[in-house]
Nucleic acid binder design. Sequence first.
DNA 1: ATTTCTTTATTGAACGTTCAATCAATAAAG
DNA 2: CTTTATTGATTGAACGTTCAATAAAGAAAT
Lengths: 201, 201
Amino acid sequence: MPKVGMEPIRRQQLIKATMAAIDEVGLADATVMRIARHAGVSAGIISHYFGGKDGLLEATMRQILSDLREAVATRRRELSTTSPRDHIGAIIDGNFDRSQVTGPVAKTWLAFWASSMHKPELARLQEVNDRRLYANLCHQFRRVMPHDEARACARALAALIDGLWLRGALTLEGLDRDEARRLARDYLDRLLDNRNTLSPS
Amino acid sequence: MPKVGMEPIRRQQLIKATMAAIDEVGLADATVMRIARHAGVSAGIISHYFGGKDGLLEATMRQILSDLREAVATRRRELSTTSPRDHIGAIIDGNFDRSQVTGPVAKTWLAFWASSMHKPELARLQEVNDRRLYANLCHQFRRVMPHDEARACARALAALIDGLWLRGALTLEGLDRDEARRLARDYLDRLLDNRNTLSPS
DNA sequence: ATTTCTTTATTGAACGTTCAATCAATAAAG
DNA sequence: CTTTATTGATTGAACGTTCAATAAAGAAAT
C-alpha cells in the first residue's frame, strides 16, 4: 500500500489553522494562503481535502459545534442527581467549558454566527445547535413549571448564555469563565426560586 | 452658485442602501456596486462622498449606534419618575426600540459587531457604545445595592439584552420585541426584588 | 535484494474572476 | 464660465481553483 493516513492529520491541522487565521485577521481576511501557511502546507491542499474553501469553513464550524455538544453531554453524564437545577447547571457549565471559550474558538464562533445569516449550510448547522440547547433547557424547566413559563425561561437563559459569549468574544481580555458561570447560575436560581413573576405570553 | 445640497441626501441614501445590501447578501458580498445599485447611483460616488468603502461602512455603523443612543435617551427623557427601576426599564425599551430591531438594522449591527473584532476603528465605536450602556445600568443599580452587586447586575442585564438581539437577528421571523422586553424586564424585577443571591466577586 | 509499478500526497505556477479605487469626461446649475 | 455632481470604463491587486509535475511509500515482480 502507498503512503496513507495523512487525511485525518491534515484535516485537523487545517481546521485548527482556520481558527488561528480567523483569530488573527478575521474571517474576511482569512485567505486560503494564510490558512495554509498557518498549517505549514501549500494552498492547493485545501481543495484536495475539503473540496474548496467553503468545505473547510463548514468543517471548522462543525468541529466547534461538535466540541460544544460534547462538553455539555460530558458534564450531564457526570451528574449523579436528576434534579432540573443540576442538569441546567451542567448545561451552563458545558457552554462555558474551557475548550470553547479560548480566544480563537470564541472569535471563530462569532464570525460563523454572523456569516450564517447568509450562508444556508452554516445556518442549518447553527439552527440544529440552537434548537438542541433550547429543547434541553425547556425540557428541564418543564419539570418544575408550566409550559409557557418553561419556554420563556429557556429562551431567556439561552439568550443570557449567548450574550455572555458575545461580550466575551469581543473584549480584549476574553471571557471571564468563572464570572459568566456565576451570573448564569444566579439567573437560574432566580428563575427557579421565584417562579410566579414571569407571566406567559 | 452651482448645484449644491446633494451631499446630505446622498449620504443618507448610501447609508440606507448599505444596510439594505448587508441585509440582502451579508457584509462579505456587499460590494460597492451592489450598494450603489440599491441607492440608484453609480459606484464611483461612494469614494466621492465617503472617501472609500471603509468610510461608508464606518458612517453606517455610526448611524446605527447614534440611533440606538437617541432611542434610549428619548425614553429616559420622557420619564416622570427618578426610580432606578423605571430608568433601567427605559434603557431596556430603548434597546428594543422599533427603529433598531428591524431586519436590516439588526443584521447590519451583528455584521459590524463581528467585523469590529479586527477593525480598530469599528472596535472603538463599539466600545464607546458598550461602556455607555454598562455605565448607565451600573449607575442605576448602584442606587439600590452595593458596588460589586451593581456591577454584576449591570453586566448580566447587558448580556441578556445583547443575547436577545443576537438571537433576534438570526431567527428568520426577526425579534419579537414584546417578548424581548418582557423577558428583560422580568429579569430586572428579579434582580431588584431579591438582591441577596448574587454574591460579589 | 533490486527493480518496476501503482497509488497517495503535495507543490506552486498559471488562469480566470472579482473587487475597490481612480480619473477623464460630461452634465447641470447658477 | 465656474463649480458641483455624477458617470462608467479602466487599472491593478488579490483571491480561489485548477492542474501538470514531483515526491514518497509500499506492493509486486524479477
